[in-house]
Structures are given as structure tokens and as C-alpha cells.
């Protein structure tokens, strides 16, 4: 198992190197000149040279690339062009904020959806199953944005149950987070439950379920013991792969609720041509995807003996 994890970690190196090449190529060859963007058309040549030297853009391209690789390895991406803050600090701060928006509803929502899906699977084919399918498909068909605007308008503005937007630090942020949490839970319920239900129902058609029936195992036990562990394999992939998207998904949420997380930081950086921040974010997202992919595979091995032992 340990050799497997080490092998998978080594696999990540060429992937991340590829991403680094692409990112570097895109921002040096295709992107605008950040110095010109910052100083404007009429800057003096001296000012341009000065800023170029400060940002390291006067170096040769191979040297710049090596510097970039060095940044990736040390996680020190230098300073923002825009605010001159250290990117690591910005990132750490933003990541915590983003996680505080997406983390709790992800955990609560997944558990809740799993329970609902098992219940529906138990009553499969009944009226309850059919009606809930209709409700969840309808709920899924409505855009994410509609939920945000609708909930903000109805629950926060009209009913005054939540804060409309804003953010505070520490525990005081919770009142501001309640509505984003609620929206995330509502939005993910439809796709999650439908996915989990399908997995459970596919498993109920397996031969081992028939064997369990032939043994005299009770229906709840078949669902919770026999089917659950098998169903966890696809469910884990789906769930863990969703984690990096939690960061991306919060772009929209952070904008609408004026919450200073990573998504907000990324959008500000894009608007200002803040290349070091964009490059750092892109690499971090690539890293997050690789890490969570690995995590999925490790969890796989944990539930599926066929992988663990081969």
C-alpha cells in the first residue's frame, strides 16, 4: 500500500510539470505585458525597466521558468503585482475563508443526501420514490444563480432571516455564512441524491444481493451492510472529486455574498492582470485535483479489497 502511494505521488510530478509548462507558456507568450498594463501607455522607459527588474521580467526566459519551478516547489509564489502582498499569505487567508463557506455544507449535505438516498432506495419503485425523483429533477433543473438571487431576495431581504451579504472574521462570520451554506446544501441535494440512488439501485440488481436474500438476510441489513460497502466505491469517487470543485464553485458564491475567499481573490487578480496570483492559483488548483485524485484512490483501496491486495 505504501509503495502504491509513493508511486502515485511520483506520478503527480510529470502532471504538475506539464501544467507548469502550460501556465508559463500561456502567460509569457500569449498574455499581455503586465508592466505595460500596470504603468499604462505613457510610462517612461526608465519606469518600465525598473518595474521589469523588480518583477524579474528582465531575466532570460529559461531563468524565469526555473524561478517559476522554484516557486512551485517552495510554495513561495512571490508577491502580488497589484497589492504587493505575499501570495502565500493571501492564499492561506483566502483558503480558510473559502473552506468556511464550502466545507460545512459539503459535509452536512453529503451525509444528509446519503441518508435520503438510502431511504429512497429502500422504498424503491414506490410513490415516495417517484415523487422525490420528480422533485429532485425539478430542483436540479433550476440554475445555481436563481437559488442565490432568489434566496437572497426572499429569505434575506424580504423575510430578514439572514444577512444579505458581507463577512466578518472568526466566529462572527457565521451569521454571514448561514445563507451560503443553506444554498449550497439545497443546490447539491438534487444531483447528489439522484447519483447515490442510482448507485444503490444498480447494486440491488447484483447477484450477491440475491445470495444475501437466499441466506435470509433482512432487507435493511442487505441495504446497509451488503449494498452500502459496494456502493461506497463509486460514491467516494464522486464525492472526493467534488472537493476541488468546491473551491471553483465558490467563485460565484463569494462574489454574490462579498466574501473575501480564494474565488474572490482569483477574480480580482484576473481583472487586474495580476499574473503571479493567477499562476499561483492555477498551480494550486492543479495540485488540489492531483491530491484529491490520489486521496480517492487511497480511499478506494480502503473499501475495495480487490485494489488493496493486488
Amino acid at each position: 500500500m505504501l509503495t502504491y502511494i509513493i508511486r502515485r505521488l511520483l506520478h503527480m510530478i510529470p502532471i504538475l510539470f506539464g501544467v507548469a509548462c502550460l501556465v508559463f507558456l500561456l502567460f509569457t507568450a500569449v498574455g499581455e505585458d503586465p508592466v505595460r498594463v500596470t504603468l499604462g501607455e505613457h510610462a517612461t522607459p526608465e519606469a518600465v525597466e525598473l518595474l521589469r527588474a523588480k518583477w524579474g521580467l528582465d531575466q532570460s526566459l529559461p531563468k524565469q521558468f526555473l524561478d517559476f519551478l522554484g516557486q512551485i516547489v517552495t510554495f513561495d509564489y512571490g508577491r502580488s503585482y497589484n497589492t504587493d502582498d505575499r501570495i502565500v499569505d493571501m492564499f492561506n487567508q483566502g483558503a480558510l475563508v473559502s473552506l468556511s463557506i464550502t466545507g460545512p455544507p459539503f459535509v452536512i449535505g453529503t451525509i444528509l443526501n446519503l441518508i435520503i438516498a438510502v431511504t429512497i432506495a429502500y422504498y424503491r419503485g414506490s410513490k415516495f420514490d417517484r415523487y422525490s425523483t420528480v422533485v429532485f429533477v425539478a430542483a436540479m433543473s433550476v440554475s445555481y444563480l436563481v437559488y442565490i438571487i432568489g434566496f437572497q431576495y426572499l429569505l434575506a431581504f424580504k423575510a430578514d432571516l439572514f444577512e444579505i451579504n458581507g463577512y466578518a472574521h472568526g466566529l462572527e462570520s457565521i451569521p454571514f455564512l448561514l445563507l451560503p451554506w443553506l444554498i449550497t446544501i439545497v443546490v447539491t441535494a438534487g444531483p447528489d441524491i439522484r447519483m447515490f440512488r442510482t448507485v444503490f439501485l444498480d447494486e440491488t440488481k447484483s447477484d450477491y444481493v440475491r445470495t444475501a436474500h437466499a441466506k435470509g438476510t433482512s432487507e435493511p441489513k442487505i441495504l446497509l451492510v451488503h449494498i452500502m460497502k459496494n456502493a461506497m466505491i463509486p460514491i467516494l469517487t464522486y464525492t472526493v472529486n467534488a472537493i476541488p470543485f468546491l473551491l471553483l464553485g465558490s467563485f460565484v458564491m463569494e462574489r454574490f455574498f462579498s466574501i473575501p475567499g480564494l474565488g474572490d481573490m482569483m477574480i480580482t487578480a484576473l481583472n487586474n492582470g495580476d499574473f503571479p496570483v493567477i499562476k499561483a492559483m492555477t498551480m494550486m488548483i492543479a495540485l488540489a485535483f492531483s491530491v484529491f485524485n490520489l486521496l480517492t484512490d487511497i480511499l478506494y483501496a480502503w473499501v475495495d479489497p480487490r485494489i488493496k491486495l493486488s
Binding site: T211, A214, H226, K229, V303, P305
Partner: peptide
């Protein structure tokens, strides 16, 4: 009838490859 299954009347199937639960010993 559930109490009879596996106790009074048992059954074995055609597909030994898939009839056992793959994730339990």
C-alpha cells in the same frame, strides 16, 4: 419466509464468480 431461507431451504446459484459479495471476506 425470510427466516426459512438459508435455514430450512437454501439455494446456490449458477454464477459463483458474482454470487459472493466482493467486499467481504
Amino acid at each position: 419466509r425470510q427466516q426459512m431461507r438459508g435455514n430450512e431451504i437454501s439455494m446456490i446459484f449458477q454464477e459463483p464468480m458474482t454470487a459472493l459479495n466482493p467486499v467481504y471476506t
